[in-house]
């Protein structure tokens, strides 16, 4: 366990983690607690607008993101796990910084101050800031050389407007290697998972997902680990390629190494059961 005080951080779960990927949310909360982060859910948060708002109505996408930022208390960073939510929130903040008059209009409308300097970070950044000692200190189980493929999808790609900002999602490999995993990378780890096309054009997504999974298995990976709940879902539901290998949320593997006990409930929600692999590796009993 960590020594010292808990660090307060505002937490934006987003729609996926709050519903279809609850296992990601729960394991994230557990890991954070063990590492000494006190995640305080953003009071009355709304959807960041997702791809649909930015596809159809930029103004709406901006306003949805801005409302979330107006709810964040000053003095502590706002953290997101979903890479897309992070992206939309940072995009909204960029405009609030560039247009003080728009920011003031929204402040008047909602009767709340919006801090243009609010720090918006990804969970991975919080981990990197704490350093490997904190991780090592909290470690209960070694990952026993679990051969994992960190799957980043499009999480590291961003529009030119956001290219100067810092992104830490790529630390997945480093963190899990520190905890005893064996990282493999020679596969399609930066290939987009298909995003919303999975709902309306599954015929386009299935071949893409199959290519990703085939390349993963070819490297000898036993599982994929992803930072994005939508990637996790798309890779699971759209893969028709055999053999299927488990796809974890990053926080699940992290929580497992940090000694979390209630994993039964998370793995039960996976479409590809990861328990045989974890049993064989001696990571669960």
């Amino acid at each position: 366990m960590h020594g010292g005080d808990l660090i307060d951080i505002s937490y934006f779960p987003g729609c996926s983690l709050a519903t279809s990927a609850k296992e990601s949310n729960i394991s994230l909360m557990e890991s954070s607690k063990i590492l000494g982060l006190n995640l305080i859910e953003l009071e009355d948060w709304n959807c960041c607008g997702s791809s649909s708002a930015s596809c159809l109505d930029k103004e709406l996408a901006f306003a949805l993101g801005a409302r979330d930022l107006s709810l964040a208390p000053a003095g502590r960073p706002l953290m997101a796990m979903c890479p897309r939510c992070l992206h939309h929130l940072r995009h909204a903040q960029l405009r609030l910084r560039e247009e003080p008059e728009t920011r003031r209009a929204l402040e008047r409308r909602w009767g709340r101050p919006i801090s243009p300097d609010l720090e918006i970070i990804h969970f991975m950044e919080a981990l990197v800031r704490m350093g490997p000692e904190r991780l090592k200190g909290g470690q209960v189980r070694s990952l026993n050389g679990l051969k994992f493929l960190p799957y980043y999808g499009c999480t590291l790609f961003r529009p030119p407007a956001l290219r100067r900002q810092k992104y830490f999602q790529a630390e997945m490999g480093t963190v899990l290697t520190t905890l005893g995993g064996q990282e493999l990378t020679k596969a399609l780890i930066y290939r987009c998972c298909g995003s919303f096309l999975s709902a309306a054009r599954a015929d386009v997504v299935t071949p893409l997902v199959n290519e990703i999974m085939e390349s993963a298995v070819a490297t000898g990976a036993e599982c994929l680990v992803t930072a994005c709940a939508m990637c996790q879902l798309n890779l699971e539901i759209r893969c028709t390629w055999e053999p299927k290998i488990p796809i974890f949320h990053f926080s699940e593997i992290l929580a497992l190494a940090l000694g979390a006990q209630d994993y039964e409930g998370w793995f039960d929600r996976h479409l590809v059961d990861p328990r045989p692999l974890l049993l064989a590796r001696g990571l669960i009993t």
Binding site: C15, A18, N46, C47, S50, S52, A53, C55, F196, A199
Partner: peptide, 19 residues
């Protein structure tokens, strides 16, 4: 179909604030 899907997502956000 893709436009229809986006419209349904926005419909949900309008009614619940979340998807």
């Amino acid at each position: 179909n893709i436009l229809d899907f986006h419209r349904e997502v926005l419909h949900s956000i309008k009614n619940y604030g979340r998807a």
